[in-house]
Simulated scan of single mutants.
Amino acid sequence: MMSSIAKSSEPAILELMERQKTFYNGSELDVRLEHLIRDTPHPTLSSWDIQRLLRDSRAVYFDSHVEVVSGHHTDVYLRFESIARFPDLVTLIASNMAEWVMQTFRHHPPTGIITTSSDARMLAERTSDILAAQMPLRVVLTPFNHETGKIGTDIIQGTVETGERFLSLNDVTTRGLCVSKLGKVVTDRGGQLAGMMVFARRDSGQFPLMDELTARFPFYFGVDLDMPQWDAPDCHSCKEHTPLLSWRDLPAL
């Protein structure tokens, strides 16, 4: 029998928050964080920096049961909005992104970065600020629906002109759909997609599109996290009747 999101999930959220707070104050946190981090194919954020980011922001919900935007279920959830509360952590990620952009595109700089009007814009704007003197990049924004988690294909800030080269940026990716959709916003307007950037990849190698994208484009991800997801019929937490919570209902810890 599959679980469904309860009409009144407040008790389950409060219980989950208390468990998370106890866990973050305990002795097992660093070990669990270390086990989440997968090796990346290129030098990015150090393991120490990644653990600091996740620990200080309390961005990871462990031993949970969360329905993500795609409808998949997971028992370990990364909430980027928790990281976005801390300007120094945003700067840490953006500095690493900027370094990758400089190294990757030093001979053929892109025109700008396209991202959503979610908290991902903070990464794009800070990266652009850091690169301003050496490689100016303008930031273009598309809509973001905070209720559904979906991005739009209109442009609400900036422009994409024919022949201009853009990097598509999102905060977190699972299947690669949103960062790919941002790229299509560019190409539909006659621009070119130069590469892709996300702070965290959390697909655990499950979704083929991510392998296709990383093979086709220069692709930055600062951290690769082992956060498996399941369709509802295959979800072990559903079978155990663990209360299911929506990604949109999870607060900062």
Rank of each mutant, 00 (worst) to 15 (best):
residue 34 E to P: 10
residue 217 F to V: 10
residue 33 L to T: 04
residue 76 V to S: 15
residue 143 P to Q: 12
residue 111 T to S: 00
residue 75 D to V: 00
residue 95 S to T: 09
residue 116 T to D: 13
residue 236 H to Y: 05
residue 167 L to P: 00
residue 112 G to D: 05
residue 238 C to A: 02
residue 251 P to Q: 01
residue 230 W to Q: 12
residue 81 E to G: 15
residue 103 Q to K: 11
residue 151 I to N: 12
residue 12 A to S: 05
residue 217 F to Y: 15
residue 43 P to A: 01
residue 127 T to I: 07
residue 79 R to Q: 14
residue 155 I to Y: 03
residue 241 H to D: 11
residue 161 E to W: 02
residue 173 T to H: 14
residue 225 L to I: 00
residue 168 S to Y: 01
residue 178 C to K: 14
residue 151 I to K: 11
residue 238 C to V: 04
residue 41 P to L: 10
residue 119 D to N: 07
residue 91 T to K: 14
residue 107 H to M: 09
residue 188 D to T: 00
residue 93 I to C: 11
residue 66 V to L: 05
residue 250 L to K: 00
residue 169 L to G: 06
residue 177 L to C: 11
residue 141 L to D: 09
residue 101 V to M: 03
residue 132 A to C: 13
residue 115 T to D: 05
residue 39 D to F: 11
residue 252 A to M: 10
residue 140 V to I: 01
residue 93 I to D: 11
residue 182 L to P: 05
residue 187 T to M: 05
residue 61 Y to M: 09
residue 43 P to I: 06
residue 35 H to S: 13
residue 72 H to F: 15
residue 21 K to H: 14
residue 118 S to I: 04
residue 250 L to A: 01
residue 92 L to A: 13
residue 248 R to I: 11
residue 210 M to I: 15
residue 21 K to T: 15
residue 92 L to K: 14
residue 1 M to T: 01
residue 169 L to C: 02
residue 195 G to I: 10
residue 75 D to K: 05
residue 90 V to A: 00
residue 73 H to M: 14
residue 7 K to P: 05
residue 44 T to K: 03
residue 206 Q to D: 04
residue 100 W to H: 08
residue 6 A to W: 08
residue 59 A to M: 06
residue 98 A to S: 02
residue 59 A to S: 15
residue 82 S to R: 12
residue 12 A to C: 07
residue 241 H to A: 09
residue 33 L to A: 03
residue 247 W to E: 10
residue 9 S to F: 08
residue 150 K to F: 14
residue 144 F to P: 09
residue 76 V to L: 11
residue 128 S to E: 13
residue 201 R to H: 14
residue 42 H to T: 03
residue 229 Q to F: 01
residue 213 L to D: 07
residue 75 D to G: 03
residue 158 G to N: 13
residue 209 L to E: 12
residue 15 E to G: 07
residue 162 T to V: 12
residue 24 Y to T: 13
residue 186 V to H: 06
residue 158 G to W: 15
residue 12 A to L: 09
residue 141 L to P: 08
residue 37 I to M: 02
residue 64 S to N: 01
residue 41 P to C: 03
residue 205 G to V: 06
residue 116 T to K: 10
residue 38 R to K: 08
residue 220 Y to R: 07
residue 107 H to V: 10
residue 133 A to P: 07
residue 205 G to R: 06
residue 121 R to I: 10
residue 179 V to R: 06
residue 202 R to L: 03
residue 126 R to I: 03
residue 72 H to T: 13
residue 50 I to V: 13
residue 50 I to C: 09
residue 37 I to E: 04
residue 237 S to V: 13
residue 150 K to H: 15
residue 120 A to M: 09
residue 160 V to I: 09
residue 151 I to R: 12
residue 149 G to W: 12
residue 115 T to C: 01
residue 87 P to H: 03
residue 50 I to S: 04
residue 127 T to D: 04
residue 151 I to V: 11
residue 130 I to W: 08
residue 251 P to E: 07
residue 165 R to F: 06
residue 23 F to R: 11
residue 38 R to V: 00
residue 104 T to W: 04
residue 163 G to P: 03
residue 115 T to L: 02
residue 17 M to D: 08
residue 140 V to N: 02
residue 234 D to C: 12
residue 100 W to N: 06
residue 70 S to L: 05
